[in-house]
Write a protein that binds this DNA or RNA. Structure first.
Lengths: 190, 190
DNA sequence: GTCTATAGATAGATAGAC
DNA sequence: GTCTATCTATCTATAGAC
């Protein structure tokens, strides 16, 4: 009989780290080739394991796709919370800064979440995402928005995600961040 | 012996029309599911034919992808030509109006051309596309552009294509067009 | 947590009849 | 221009040993 792992003994791979590594690898590949263009084999290859090992952590590809989106949804919720609880005169600026930081920190992932057809289809059926997006949109639109303002928001949404998809934009990070916040603000100044 | 089709007699399917129908069907499917998410079987099904019939018109899937992008490239060239030959004080406005009209008329296709990973990879190796994009970018950036202006252009590029991907934006078409031109102009007013 | 092995479906692509 | 039939490769997913 083989002894069980005694409590407190370090495993070769810390708890949950295999899963996190897998999600990170999947996110990179999704950003490069799209969700449909990424096979489980490709994910396994990047990790240096077999497909079966991938299926040990997730029961389906869809589950991996959702797992990739989850951190972004969490950040969206934080942004909506922060903007909603701030003074109304500041809520828009807070939302814009949050979205810019999200696009810059998550880069490819944020872009994939917004523009990949497979991801979009899964997230539409995933209530938490739709709810946070709706909250932020409402904050940025204000009450009874004009058609022009709704156009401007859709435009700005595409703009911010296009930036996330760019390979590291040159110039100091702080200048890029400030430039993007200015671009978003300009787009919504109507 | 069967007589050959006499000259001048109308064929059941006009010359080249099968090809055009195929490209249109492929463009729709690419917009809905992405290039990787669209099989040749799916294209054939939408046309009510078999895969073999598709392979009669195109020798590979890549060729279909390029054929879908070709009309967009043609329009980009017209835009660049028109803007370049106009008075410098008007060239930016002409380019913006042209891009907005392209995004609105081609809708899904224009968006796919800009954001699908498979399409992007093929077009990067397709000189005509890169050349026209470079011409238009140069026109919109002007000489020795600042980092902020290059950021603004990338932002605007994402914005305009996000609009194309939207399902028919409500409001009168003319208002949508004017709103988009205003959004693009605002984005580049730096 | 990783492996080998494989099922079952579907992918892109080809051959040849009509 | 369209078909049936088929090839080979790859896909998602499962079973079961270590």
């Amino acid at each position: 009989m083989i002894a069980e792992t005694p409590p407190g003994v370090r495993r070769r791979t810390p708890r949950g780290q295999g899963r996190a590594r897998l999600v990170a690898a999947a996110a990179e590949l999704f950003a490069e080739n799209g969700v449909s263009g990424t096979s489980l084999q490709a994910i396994a290859d990047r990790l240096g394991v077999t497909k079966a090992a991938v299926y040990h952590q997730f029961t389906s590809k869809d589950e991996i796709v959702i797992a990739v989106a989850e951190p972004v949804i969490g950040v969206l919720e934080s942004i909506a919370d922060a903007a909603a609880s701030a003074d109304p005169s500041e809520s828009q600026a807070i939302a814009i800064a949050g979205l810019v930081d999200l696009a810059l920190s998550e880069r490819g992932t944020a872009a994939i979440v917004r523009r990949d057809p497979t991801m979009a289809r899964l997230l539409d059926a995933h209530e938490p995402y739709a709810r946070q997006i709706a909250r932020i949109d409402a904050l940025l639109l204000g009450p009874s928005p004009s058609t022009d303002r709704r156009l401007a928001l859709a435009f700005a949404g595409g703009g911010i995600m296009a930036i996330g998809a760019l390979p590291g934009f040159d110039g100091p990070a702080e200048q890029v961040r400030a430039g993007l916040i200015a671009a978003m603000t300009r787009a919504l100044s109507i």
